[in-house]
């Protein structure tokens, strides 16, 4: 009797082991290729980057000459030009985000609401608004520069202006913002279009019966329904613009107050490109600091998103989505 139990136990164990093995094999073969490439092309360089931030460099090699120092970070928290420039640029980037991120959310949201009323030619409008974003920034930036040239630009001669758009700090930020809206809102716009498309029509009808005004309808029906999209856009747009570089590099490089125009990544790039390898450690440390900041703000966003009470309509919407 005991033997039999043992045998059963043994068989079960073996079966179990076999299935775990099979499962392991399955997971391994499906996840394996990605795991390997993730480790090789994402984790490895990242770890190397972190090591670099704790390393000292000589001017003769881009490989660290000494590992295990916190000097690079110490410099960033001391009273030095490099620290002042870096934190100023972080603050600049942050202010830029505070201006551009809301625009990159509200403008596409507004446009998506308009498209959602399905006016004639709405498919064409949707395509046209998305179009500028598909091109290389180098091409669209070049066109913008020529278009806003102070003396021979189309804009200034049409409106009879003499504004030097790229030579003044405020107007230069304005053009960069314009660039970000022109070429950057396409994705957000499409996501909002999708979100609005999926809002349960019966909710609108119900609110019509209740005699809701347009604004209240938007606030209580539409907004809760597209909350996932709203959050997604906020999250990715914020991360994207905290890393802003190309747009500024293209449009501001001739500004006499370039120091006021440089974003955090611009400062880091300054230290990396064509420069003394001795600065690589500082650049890496700056990158880590910036990353920590972004993660911090992202976590706040996540918490805010979770904590906000889910409204009744949104719950209904969720339920409906589940059932579909």
């Amino acid at each position: 009797m005991e033997k039999l139990v043992n045998l059963k136990e043994f068989a079960r164990k073996k079966e179990k082991r076999k299935s775990t093995f099979l499962k392991f094999l399955n997971v391994g073969s499906f996840l394996g290729p990605y795991t390997i490439s993730f480790l090789m092309f994402f984790v490895f360089p990242l770890v190397l980057g972190i090591i670099m931030s704790f390393s000292k460099f000589k001017s003769t090699s881009i490989m660290p000459s000494q590992i295990g120092t916190i000097d690079n970070y110490a410099v960033l928290f001391k009273d030095s030009a490099i620290a002042r420039d870096f934190w100023k640029s972080v603050w600049t980037t942050f202010k830029f985000c505070l201006c551009v991120v809301p625009l990159s959310i509200l403008i596409p949201l507004g446009l998506a609401l308009l498209v959602n009323t399905k006016p004639p030619l709405y498919k064409f409008f949707r395509a046209a608004i998305y179009l500028p974003g598909i091109f290389p920034l180098t091409s669209t930036g070049l066109i913008l520069m020529r278009l806003f040239d102070s003396h021979y630009g189309f804009v200034n001669s049409i409106f009879n202006l003499t504004t030097d758009w790229f030579g003044d700090v405020a107007s230069c930020w304005f053009i960069i913002g314009l660039f970000c809206v022109w070429c950057g809102i396409g994705g957000n716009f499409i996501i909002f279009c999708a979100g609005l498309e999926n809002v349960d029509k019966s909710l609108y009808e119900a609110s019509d019966v209740d005699g809701c005004g347009k604004f209240r309808k938007f606030l209580h029906v539409t907004l809760p329904a597209i909350k996932p999209q709203l959050f997604l856009n906020l999250f990715t747009t914020f991360i994207g613009y905290m890393n802003v570089y190309g747009q500024i590099y293209m449009l501001a490089s001739n500004n006499p107050d370039l120091g006021e125009m440089k974003s955090a990544v611009y400062r880091i790039q300054d230290l990396l490109v064509g420069s003394n390898p001795m600065s690589f450690g500082y650049a890496a440390a700056m990158g880590i600091c910036l990353g920590v900041l972004i993660i911090f703000v992202s976590i706040i966003q996540l918490i805010l998103n979770k904590e906000r009470k889910v409204s009744k309509h949104a719950k209904k919407f969720e339920a409906w989505k589940e059932s579909k």
Partner: peptide
């Protein structure tokens, strides 16, 4: 959320 610029030079290596 990690800025890509951290790993640019390491990726080159």
């Amino acid at each position: 959320t990690i800025p890509g610029i951290i790993s640019t030079t390491p990726q080159l290596i």
